[in-house]
Design a protein around this nucleic acid. Structure first.
Lengths: 201, 201
DNA sequence: TTATAAATTGCACAACGTTCAATTATTCTG
DNA sequence: CAGAATAATTGAACGTTGTGCAATTTATAA
């Protein structure tokens, strides 16, 4: 008991987040448990509570990490792609990540912050990187649109694609007889880009 | 113990669903509890398990009821409205319901069916009524589009609006500095209707 | 060396979903 | 109408969960 020398505070936090994200990927948000995370790293639950204060803070941190993974995933999908294909790569990458990391992706949206708990700025900025990435791509396709409007469009298009992705992964689309959610999402994006006067869509 | 005469099976199910939906509205999916429902109606948890088999089935039934509420809400918002305004009423009604019944609405999407549990047909049909309603409105605005395509468009537009609504209620839009999610959603719907050649949008 | 501070634990608590034998109420049968 | 069969309902148990806290161990400072 009490073996501070094994890991520094930062190392221990990383250890917990690694194990936590693995557990989340394996069992999903509904069956996630701080106790199980503790068991997996050989520490007691109290240590996790000491470092993260509550299971909500831990899940928040895990989900922010997932955003990081997600952004990297999208950047890789964009590398080497040019022109309008970058928009396709972006939408498809969005769907692919969710499909390949179903539990991690869903956890982001299944977790609701307690009413008395605000999103820490650091986490918000981390998560915002994904939106920045999308803004850049939208701006490239709509060179005549001013930046504020690009930002609004990016938010809106992400929301639209998110809706399609959520319905796809939850099974709602399947229950409605829809078998090509990605095509649907892509069409909606094209509708909007054309409405904004995108040159070649 | 054992007082079968108090309520018939159907009455008791309705009693549980009423109390369950009230509890869900008050505390949200994360703090919903079958035990608390039992306490509120003066029965034991065992009785609820006997009638609904598991808390997942109970939540499923509550959420299907919410779909019913939601559909009725939309129909009321549509009554007396004509022309293109019906599309506006529909999108706004979607947002309004979610805002006025945040916990009920969110519970629909926070609840994931266990992997070994399928959506019962009866519930799927119930929930499908909302989509049918939307299909009718889309068909009215796009008279030249054939029915299968209308159905696909309806699914897609609902997904898009859902994405905007989800980001609005979760606070994601606020964190991104977006303060008019409804306008955003409405614009995306118009983009698509115009792309489909809607006469007057 | 001793005092102070920080980390870590183990235990307790209340609540959860689920299971099940026991009990009570109803219905069926002869 | 009595007695057997059936169905409903309960209460208690079990293994979880998140959280709080006093006690203990380790590291640091004086």
């Amino acid at each position: 008991m009490g073996r501070r020398s094994d890991h520094s505070r930062e190392e221990l936090e990383a250890l917990i987040l690694d194990a936590g994200q693995n557990l989340m990927a394996q069992v999903g948000f509904a069956h996630f448990s701080a106790r199980e995370v503790a068991k997996r790293i050989g520490y007691s639950v109290g240590t996790i509570m000491h470092l993260f204060s509550s299971v909500d803070h831990l899940v928040l941190a895990i989900n922010s990490r997932t955003f990081l993974l997600w952004t990297a995933w999208l950047e890789e999908r964009l590398s080497g792609v040019s022109g309008n294909d970058r928009i396709y790569a972006l939408v498809q990458g969005y769907f692919d990540f969710a499909a390949h990391h179903h539990n991690l992706w869903s956890a982001i949206y299944e977790h609701r912050l307690p009413a008395d708990m605000a999103m820490p700025d650091a986490h918000n900025e981390l998560r915002g990187c994904l939106m920045t990435l999308v803004e850049q791509e939208i701006a490239a396709v709509l060179p005549h649109v001013e930046q504020d409007e690009v930002a609004r469009l990016a938010r809106s298009l992400v929301a639209s694609v998110h809706g399609h992705c959520a319905f796809a992964l939850s099974g709602s689309f399947a229950l409605l007889g829809e078998d090509a959610p990605l095509d649907l999402a892509m069409q909606r994006v094209i509708d909007t880009l054309r409405a904004q006067g995108a040159p070649s869509f």
